[in-house]
Write a protein that binds this DNA or RNA. Structure first.
Ligand SMILES: [Zn+2]
Length: 427
DNA sequence: CGACTTTGACCAGCGC
DNA sequence: GCGCTGGTCAAAGTCG
């Protein structure tokens, strides 16, 4: 259906261009000939006006079409992503009994320098407003709100007024799903809350998927949350064992029932480093910033999954398993590189943007060569993926969205690097 | 007053 | 079985 619409759009576009040429040519050609009577002039004027109106209408139509197409494209892309992931899951989970352990890589040692934010580039470039980083500097609660405000401005098509009610609804909905989510098996005995038995398997699948597609992003940020284009609803906060900073739990609030969650926690050693862990995939249309983030996490998750399914330490992306990379050749790029610590057997990927480029221009010129590393965790290996490395490039270039997202993240960090107000104190 | 955040409580998993 | 820990819920509080 989408392809049909696409064709329609193109057809109209062609039509319009023809009309434009008509509108451009006929009057001009007929006006220039020497003496034209007033009646003729008015005639032409009315004709022109009519033409103009038609063009306007056409234009609006086209705009609609374009929006529609963009929407469809986005949703299709998301769909494709999830399908790909599901397929890989089907392969991977069967071979590989991935344990559901919580990852412990949130507390990597601090690295040296550079500041990074995620995703705001796209927004700032789209809105041509440099205020993004400043907004995200506000206090915890406000930071959230501002994210929301920006999102609601940004997303005209995202159920603006009904949002809140839906969120409420979704909260309860999620209460059920998340119960089934995390404790699907044992929940049966303890509470009678799950009367939705037939849904169970689906949700179990969804949970698995969500848990498997877990991606951490480490950034330098003074604000309590990085801007990633999504609306997040906080549903919990916890002190964790080996980190004096609390971990905050958020779930996606952009659509009811969206399974995506994220955890945000500051690094114990370096409080300027913010670790954000994303779980799951959105089940709704995303704005470009969120889309970039989502595709990044999807790609990273796929890499992690494929890593977990390959035995030789080489995955489909041509990424080599940790041992080799860790041991040497890529390290020189990151003098202050944290070593991977305490990775559990849980497959997850860490995008480390904390080794920010000192030279912003360099990063902007060649975003993909920015100091960025990915640390993938798989049952049998710890992967540290250097975006600069050839092996990595081979794999990542396959997915333009991935590089786009990375580029956005890096370039954004360049934009925001200079303007870092004083750190606000967390509550 | 509704939407959203905070925070104590609850629950499951895990190790001992 | 017990205690610890992480994840989630939901009532209460806060905010606009
Ligand atoms: Zn979502």
């Amino acid at each position: 259906m989408d392809s049909r619409r696409f064709d329609d759009g193109r057809g109209i576009g062609l039509d319009l261009s023809m009309k434009i040429s008509q509108a451009d040519c006929t009057p001009v050609a007929s006006i220039f000939p020497v003496k034209v009577s007033n009646a003729d002039k008015t005639n032409q004027m009315t004709e022109l006006e009519a033409e103009l109106k038609r063009m306007n209408a056409e234009n609006q139509k086209l705009n609609f079409m374009l929006k529609d197409m963009t929407k469809n494209y986005n949703s299709l892309q998301m769909h494709l992503m999830s399908l790909i992931q599901k397929r890989q899951l089907a392969h991977g989970v069967a071979q590989n009994q991935v344990s559901d352990r919580v990852e412990e890589n949130m507390r990597l040692p601090a690295s040296k320098d550079g500041r990074q934010f995620i995703g705001a580039l796209s927004l700032s470039s789209l809105e041509s407003e440099p205020a993004v980083s400043q907004q995200s500097q506000s206090s915890e609660g406000h930071g959230l709100r501002e994210d929301r405000v920006k999102d609601s401005k940004f997303l005209d098509n995202q159920l603006p007024s009904k949002k809140r009610k839906i969120n409420k609804l979704y909260q309860t909905e999620n209460a059920i799903s998340s119960k089934d989510d995390s404790h699907h098996d044992d929940e049966h005995q303890s509470k009678g809350r799950h009367q939705i038995g037939h849904k169970e398997s689906d949700q179990t699948e969804a949970t698995k998927l969500r848990k498997l597609s877990r991606v951490s992003v480490r950034t330098r940020s003074d604000s309590s949350m990085i801007y990633d284009g999504c609306q997040w609803r906080k549903y919990g906060q916890k002190m964790t064992r080996d980190n004096s900073n609390p971990r905050a739990y958020y779930r996606c609030g952009m659509a009811p029932g969206c399974p995506v969650r994220k955890q945000v926690q500051r690094c114990a050693e370096d409080k300027s480093i913010l670790t954000t862990t994303y779980e799951g995939e959105h089940n709704h249309i995303l704005n470009p910033v969120a889309m970039a983030m989502a595709t990044t996490t999807s790609a990273a998750a796929r890499m992690s999954l494929s890593n977990s399914t390959t035995s030789e330490g080489m995955n489909e992306f041509g990424l080599r398993a940790a041992g080799t990379q860790m041991a040497g050749t890529q390290m020189p790029f990151f003098p202050g590189l944290p070593t991977l610590s305490a990775f559990s057997t849980f497959p997850a990927v860490t995008l480390d943007l904390t080794n920010g480029p000192i030279n912003p221009v360099q990063g902007l010129m060649n975003p993909v060569s920015g100091n960025m590393q990915m640390q993938g965790q798989a049952p049998f290996c710890n992967n540290q993926i250097d975006v600069q490395s050839g092996s990595m490039m081979g794999g990542l270039r396959v997915d333009p969205n991935f590089t786009a997202a990375l580029a956005a993240a890096i370039a954004n960090s360049m934009l925001t690097a200079g303007s870092q107000p004083a750190m606000q104190s967390k509550k």
